[in-house]
Design a binder for these strands. Structure first.
Length: 194
DNA sequence: CGGCAGATACGCT
DNA sequence: GCGTATCTGCCGT
């Protein structure tokens, strides 16, 4: 029985983001089970200029203002999807961007979803992993306690296992230390940046 | 391996 | 119009 996600993720984004490291995503896709471990995350909050929720609750960002444990999927650069886990209390726009995952099962299917590619480039970026898991705009607002895409919480990692850095690919609030990744993990998108 | 341009849609100014 | 929470291919070292 899956625990209630909305209650467990009812915390600020910068607290939820490192908490989600090591947790697992289970995607049922065409009768197959794809499983992956979250290895890199970033926090976004409505008080933060870099967040889509900064300008308020709009059609695009409304999911971020809903209950925790749901998926916020956005489309960017005219071709890419990225996925976030909504966190915090309802009415407050916050979410955690999943930046990288490590495949644990169903790697062949993920590879097929990625034009036959293999290795870290399969899932070491926010738009790469959505492609590998076949997640698109139809998943915006999806409840992560339900099939075909579930989030399974795992015990928190030790602080010594987690590296904290500034976020990637943004032009505002670039100094906030809201990017988190698992130390020495091969699937982290840009391990060098600190 | 690092840097840069191009692809390409959409929300906001 | 413009900028974007990105990726890929192509170039040079």
């Amino acid at each position: 029985m899956q625990a209630d996600l909305s209650h467990l993720l009812d915390v600020p984004a910068e607290v939820a983001a490192p908490r989600l490291l090591g947790c697992e995503l289970i995607r049922e896709f065409e009768g197959q089970e794809l499983i992956a471990k979250i290895v890199e995350t970033e926090a976004y909050d409505q008080i933060d200029e870099a967040s889509h929720s900064f300008r308020g609750n709009t059609t695009r960002t409304s999911v971020m203002f809903g209950p925790a444990g749901f998926l916020y999927v956005y489309f960017t650069y005219g071709m890419h999807y990225c996925m976030n886990v909504v966190v915090g209390v309802p009415g407050h726009g916050a979410a955690v961007l999943i930046r990288a995952i490590e495949p644990l099962a169903g790697v062949e299917i993920m590879s097929a979803n990625r034009h036959g590619l293999a290795g870290p480039i399969l899932t070491n970026g926010p738009a790469k992993l959505t492609q590998a898991l076949a997640v698109d705009r139809n998943f915006n607002g999806h409840n992560l306690a339900e099939s075909p895409l579930k989030l399974v919480l795992k015990p928190s990692l030790a602080g010594s296992e987690i590296i904290t850095t500034t976020r990637i690919g943004i032009s505002r609030a670039i100094d906030k230390p809201w990017r988190f990744y698992i130390k020495n993990n091969q699937f982290v998108s840009k391990p060098n940046l600190a």
